[in-house]
Amino acid sequence: MIAFIVRRLLQSLVVMLVVALLAFSMFRFIGDPVNQMVGVDTTEEVRENLRERLGLNDPVSVQFGRFVVNAAQLDFGISYQHKKEVSNLLAERAPATLELAFLSAIFALIVGVPMGVYTGLHRDSWLSKVFLTVSLVGISLPTFLIGILMIFIFSVWLGWLPSFGRGEVVDLGFWSTGLLTVSGWQAAIMPSITLGLFQMTLIMRLVRAEMLEVLRTDYVKFARARGLPNRAVHFGHALKNTLVPVITITGLQLGSIIAFAIITETVFQWPGMGLMFLQAIQTVDIPIMAAYLILIAFIFVVINLIVDILYYVVDPRLRIDRATAAGH
């Protein structure tokens, strides 16, 4: 187990270095950074000075090394546009994105798993057919369209929910949360549903497919033949066996929820990292873009690691020493 985690950590490190290289090359290939820092009328001498001071005349490998060392200390430089430290900017925006992603994932799980179980158990009931049809809509409609439709219905038409922003935010010092105020919750409802809808339908279809598969297995038949009540068969024996793929997909999806919150954040003007990233692209604010890239990669890597560790928790077959099972 320990050896496995160490191995995964080393792999993750390689992935992060590759991503850092990509982020770093943005500085070099998307325009001259000095051009973006100084005015048009700056003399060549001043520019050369600046270049020397920023270390831009050093060999590429040295610069990359410096970039990695700084990034590891969460120092991503200063935003061209905001003139503030990128890490501080991201830290200000992160809570909004993370809360949104978290709420979306919870919504996707809480709604998706029961719907999947229901449609798996009652394959031919009309409610299952309704669920499946709705899920088709969820999978095929683009996120921004659903978001705009929801704004139209619930904000413009019914006037129940705010159409943009995060509502009132409580600052806890290290974290600003919208989950402590009513307006915060109200503002979070539509973005989280919009963002989580796709994952929800995905989870529902996945759980359904897995349930159908598991219900055909011998151990479920045997559980029935032993006279166990339906509840024990369905939830104890069947559902638990569907969890391994569900954990994988949900985990990986959590990464994409955070990464692809960009669109939802834009539609709802949600003040998170995604919105800032989009604005950064518009103003070619490379430090923010690079930092965001690295951050998202980091989140994916961490989530993958956690998912792998969760396998061990759920499936006892993996807990045996890998050394003995190294044959395959």
Binding site: T217, D218, Y219, F222, A225, R226, G227, N230, K240, P316
Partner: peptide, 25 residues
């Protein structure tokens, strides 16, 4: 009938490898 299964009629299936749920002791 569910209450009779196991208590009055038991059943043994073909494949012992798949008759037991891998996630439980």
């Amino acid at each position: 009938m569910r209450r009779y299964r196991g208590a009055r009629i038991g059943m043994v299936f073909q494949d012992p490898l798949t008759s037991l749920n891998p996630l439980y002791t």
